[in-house]
Nucleic acid binder design. Structure first.
Lengths: 231, 231
DNA sequence: TAACATTTTTACCGGCTGGTCAAATATTCA
DNA sequence: TGAATATTTGACCAGCCGGTAAAAATGTTA
């Protein structure tokens, strides 16, 4: 498995030769719009069916393009997938990297949860794309998880641990606290079909996000953070 | 999409004609072992790659069988998938159905979380199979979610709501409390690759489940349940 | 052992898969 | 304009896909 996300952003086939001596050549109008069209379509397909389950034919037809035309912009199926993942990982990491050691635990964690839930609501397909990639064994982003993500989690876990040590946060394993935040927030994107069916909502009805926000605040903040009025 | 889980348990092709007047004919030794072998292999493949991403060739080769031989025991790809899902849903629902209105909230919820986490640890592939099915839009179990699961959740949510009303449980939306429990517990199965890579663990190392159990207890019980020594 | 039922294999099918190629068509710009 | 470049198309390919048919092999039982 290739497992290289870095500098594999989408480029038309003829300009995609990275590593050679050529300057990267700026993109055409058509190139920009078509790459965007392809990525949009591919996101729909990959996020539903995963890498293996997705087909170029379906992506092409969703993008309203012929398959060879699609392959003019992306070298192959894998490159489309990698381009999507690369775009996603930024969105993914930013909120975590914004947790500040100097801030207030309640505000920092609360803000993080809120942003994660917003992302879940705004980018549900990206969330499902990510989930599919992990379920498949992370063939494309294993390196990223092992290195960059781990490093960032280690950093932030240290901050959380300090808060625990200072008695500003209920004693808990910081890494698992992050897992709990990830899972609960992403659940509303990844399992949205189940959530809707169980709640009896129509497809596309996102109204449950308000309740979700309330629940997560109750779960993670009202109680977890040590600001009881009783001590 | 067929969407019929009920009475679609695996049967050899020649005995699979349900709905006719024939008695169900008991299974051969060979039939029993081979169906088990197939389901075992299929669980590996489907849980990694989803329904569309999985292929009969890979399932057959994982089961150490020829493809036609495999199709002697299951009518087609979909039937194998449905058989797996049917087997899974029982495991899935049982713990929830065991939540008792007459029990103590802490013990009931705590026990439920514990059992869900145990299932996540014991049946990670089943959990991923389920996750894949939901990500794909629940084409095979949509009816089940809309009817049986919803009904059960409605019942149990009512119990939880009564506990909230009686002040025995922190005010929260019961349904979303269940979602939070589902997501956090299943996360350790569905995203195990990510969990391991972030924690720096080797593949197959399940040691994190102890920490997880501790975390979930802290998150859901120590704080959420209203048994503070301060009131 | 012979008759019968079950299981496995071999050979095969049409359609889809990811992907290539060269020719045809648009677009850009000197 | 026209030459150069960028884009799109259609025809095609080998291999895989889910699945079938029938014969061969194996197991069961009277």
């Amino acid at each position: 498995m290739s497992d290289k996300i870095n500098d594999l952003m989408p480029t038309a086939a003829h300009t995609a030769v990275s590593g050679d001596g050529m300057p990267p050549k700026q993109k055409t109008r058509i190139q920009i719009t078509n790459e965007a069209k392809i990525l949009e379509a591919a996101l729909d397909v990959f996020s539903q069916d995963g890498f293996r389950g997705a087909t170029l034919d379906r992506i092409a037809s969703a993008a309203d393009m012929s398959k060879p035309n699609l392959l003019y912009y992306f070298k192959n199926k894998e490159m489309i997938h990698i381009a999507l993942l690369a775009g996603l990982l930024d969105i993914w990491l930013t909120p975590l990297s914004e947790i500040s050691a100097t801030g207030d635990p309640t505000l920092e964690i609360g803000g993080y949860i809120k942003r994660k839930l917003e992302i879940s609501r705004e980018y549900p397909r990206e969330s499902r794309l990510f989930a599919n990639e992990i379920l498949a064994g992370a063939p494309h982003i294993g390196d990223f998880l092992r290195t960059k993500l781990k490093k960032l989690v280690d950093e932030k876990a240290e901050i959380l641990q300090r808060w625990v040590d200072n008695g500003r946060l209920a004693p808990c394993d910081p890494r698992h606290l992050l897992f709990a935040i990830w899972s609960t927030t992403q659940h509303y994107a990844d399992f949205s079909v189940q959530v809707r069916l169980v709640l009896g909502l129509e497809a596309e009805d996102n109204s449950y996000y308000e309740e979700a926000s309330q629940m997560l605040e109750t779960l993670f903040l009202s109680q977890l953070i040590k600001t009881h009025d009783c001590d």
